[in-house]
Amino acid sequence: MTDLMNKHSGDLQVAGEQRLTAAQFQRSTEQEPMEEFEPIRDFFQRRQAKHLSERASTVQIVTERAAAYRGHFVFPGIDTFAGIEVDGQRVGYVDYGINPLGDRLYINKIEIEDQHQRGGVGLSVMWLLWRTHQVPLVPIQEFWSSKGFWYKARQRLAAAGALIDPELHTGDLEQAQQRWRHLIPELPHERQIREMMASPEWPEIEAGFNARQAL
Rank of each mutant, 00 (worst) to 15 (best):
K50M: 04
F73W: 05
L20G: 03
A67K: 10
H169I: 02
A162H: 07
V94S: 02
Y106K: 01
V121D: 01
A198Y: 07
G102E: 12
R194V: 03
S9M: 12
L52K: 03
R131K: 11
E190L: 01
V121T: 13
K109W: 00
P200C: 04
Q24P: 00
I40Y: 12
S9K: 09
R27W: 09
R131F: 09
W127A: 03
I84C: 03
W127G: 03
L129Y: 07
F25P: 00
E36Q: 15
Q177H: 03
Y106E: 03
W144P: 01
Q192M: 07
V59N: 01
A159C: 02
R194L: 05
V94I: 14
I98Y: 08
E64D: 15
I110V: 13
S146P: 01
R19G: 00
R65V: 13
P136L: 01
A159Q: 09
R191T: 11
E85F: 11
S53Q: 05
E113R: 10
Q134D: 08
M197Q: 15
E85S: 12
G10N: 13
W150E: 05
E38W: 14
H182K: 08
V59D: 02
A159S: 09
H72S: 14
G171K: 02
Q13K: 15
Y93S: 13
A67S: 11
R47G: 00
W202L: 06
L215I: 07
P100D: 12
E195D: 15
L12Q: 08
V74K: 04
Q31W: 13
T132D: 15
A214Q: 15
F44N: 04
Q117D: 00
Q26L: 02
G148I: 01
E36Y: 04
L12D: 06
A56T: 08
E167M: 12
E167Q: 12
G97K: 02
P39Y: 14
F73V: 06
R90Q: 14
Q60R: 11
I61M: 03
S146L: 05
K7W: 11
M196R: 10
S9P: 00
L183Y: 07
N108H: 15
R47A: 12
V138F: 09
A207T: 10
M126H: 05
Q177A: 15
Y69G: 00
R181Q: 15
V74F: 09
W144G: 07
F25G: 11
L128I: 12
V91H: 04
S199V: 10
P76Y: 07
I193A: 12
F37N: 13
Q175M: 06
E35A: 11
I40W: 10
Q134P: 02
V74A: 11
E111A: 06
Q18A: 13
S146D: 00
G122V: 05
A153M: 07
G77N: 04
P200L: 04
S28G: 05
R65C: 10
G71I: 04
